[in-house]
Design a protein around this nucleic acid. Structure first.
Lengths: 150, 150
DNA sequence: CAACGTCAGTTCCCTGAGGGAACCCCAATC
DNA sequence: GATTGGGGTTCCCTCAGGGAACTGACGTTG
């Protein structure tokens, strides 16, 4: 157990990191989201080692985040987002929003998002599921929940 | 751990990963958020190697996410979130929300969040900054932005 | 004032994960 | 039958993470 195992911690952040916390995994998801769904495409776009790409794809499939499916009679496969995976992409959008705000600098954001519902270039906003008001780290108290066994 | 440097990619996700993508970094931020702000506390709570904890804290301070400040006349320091860091915690809340939904299982979420504004136990919801409607990965088209030089 | 304790790191060695390049397998096409 | 091209495996090498011991600054206690 050299590399510490996050999956057994009583923390949803740690558990989520166990799914996409390894290096490259979020970028693999991003690429799949924007339509780079094949091994060679991913490898070329990311410059990732083929060995590691294989490992990451297998792990993401095992976790139910991606689905591996054939697209030819030849042994050719593409990776597509499951529902579980698509909701992880929501997380990536929030991540991109933070990067746009704090890291983009003069040049401005590298990618813009057009919202289908209103057609506008926009970003995400975090709001309370209950009351609809803004909900940020400082607007919240963390309390132990039912799964908080240690 | 990242042999490859993500910070120069024209992608806000990759750049954000360069700040908190290393193993342990998100958990360090989580701990600081909930009040574990000192070296010994973090080390004990996470079980992280002291060497790596030092590296992560330095990196997070360099990135302007944490601030290192003395709390005694002795050489004692605590780490506190900057505004930049607090907004990263927003990201962690979204991450926790995903983990709660997809990984918590029978036991239920290990942590609950009480929203100050309404007093309810709640979660975050992603909405469009412009129109206020729900905004998820599938509700959006990514377009090249001003900083999209490759 | 010497001994002790505490916090906040450093230093050391050892293992294992990532990088990189070469190699392999399969099915279709030339 | 040889070639091509996608989708991986296998190999070696280096460097990052784990773990534990060590250090140094500064109070407190006897």
């Amino acid at each position: 157990m050299q590399r510490t195992d996050f999956s057994r911690m009583a923390c949803s952040i740690a558990r989520t990191l166990d799914v996409i916390g390894e290096p490259w995994s979020p970028l693999v998801l991003r690429d799949v989201w924007v339509g780079l769904t094949r091994f060679e495409q991913l490898q070329a776009d990311l410059g990732i080692s083929r060995k590691v790409l294989t490992e990451r794809l297998n792990h993401l499939v095992d976790q139910g985040v991606l689905e591996r499916r054939p697209y030819d009679r030849r042994p050719r496969y593409e990776y597509v987002l499951t529902e579980k995976g698509a909701e992880l992409v929501d997380l990536l959008m929030v991540m991109a929003g933070w990067g746009d705000k704090w890291l983009a600098g003069e040049a401005g954001p590298p990618v813009l998002y057009r919202h289908h519902a209103c057609g506008e270039i926009s970003g995400v906003d975090l709001r309370c599921t209950r009351c609809g008001e803004p909900m940020h780290a400082n607007d919240v108290d963390p309390l132990p929940g039912p799964g908080a066994t240690v």
